[in-house]
Amino acid sequence: MIHLAEITRKFQMGDQAVYALDKVDLNIAAGEYVSIMGPSGSGKSTLLNIIGLLDRPDSGCYELDGKNVTELSETEQARVRRKKIGFVFQAFHLVPRLTAAENIELPLILNGTPPVERQTLVAEALQAFDLQSRAQHRPAELSGGQRQRVAIARATILQPSAILADEPTGNLDHVIGAEVMMLLENLHHAGTTLIMVTHDRELGARARRHIGMRDGKIVTDVS
């Protein structure tokens, strides 16, 4: 499903070019559960952003579902991102002035889904993530776990084929973190590809496939 070939991404730091990704090759099949681990600055978040089409590689080729997406225009990439990718962030990134239900509804609005259909889908998502009683609350009135549940509900509302999670439990305590992981893994069990970037060895170990990164290169890839 995901096919990266010789992906390079470099940043200019003063007069020095820093390679966040250095000719990375990676194949991920549909339905896999992959953890990407490595020290800070090893390029793991950059890899995730490139997979999620948030960032463009300087060179290399990226095929998603058999289609070369590196050459797509920004608008077309936004469409692909909307339909196929769901992001879950460490900082949740909920819109503070919108309620939980409205945050979940956002991707549907961007997608142009008609309002009636939106209502049903949001109601289903609220129920699936046990958020019915919090539907009309704003992010500030929600606990960390509830916020991440809203974020996951939002990431999955358009039924993407892959969930990209960047330290999804980084801002949560152990118990709540484990609950959130359960939710993500349930999605994986239902057939969604799950790619997670984490520092946490214990968390990383739960995945079926472990990718280790250092200095912009994949150094280990254990299934």
């Binding site: 948030l54 469409r79 909307r82 990134h93 819109v95 961007l110």
Partner: peptide
């Protein structure tokens, strides 16, 4: 951050 999020969930520049 909100603009970044909107882009991540599929908003394009025109939106």
């Amino acid at each position: 951050a909100e603009i970044g999020l909107l882009k991540a969930i599929g908003a394009d520049a025109a939106d």
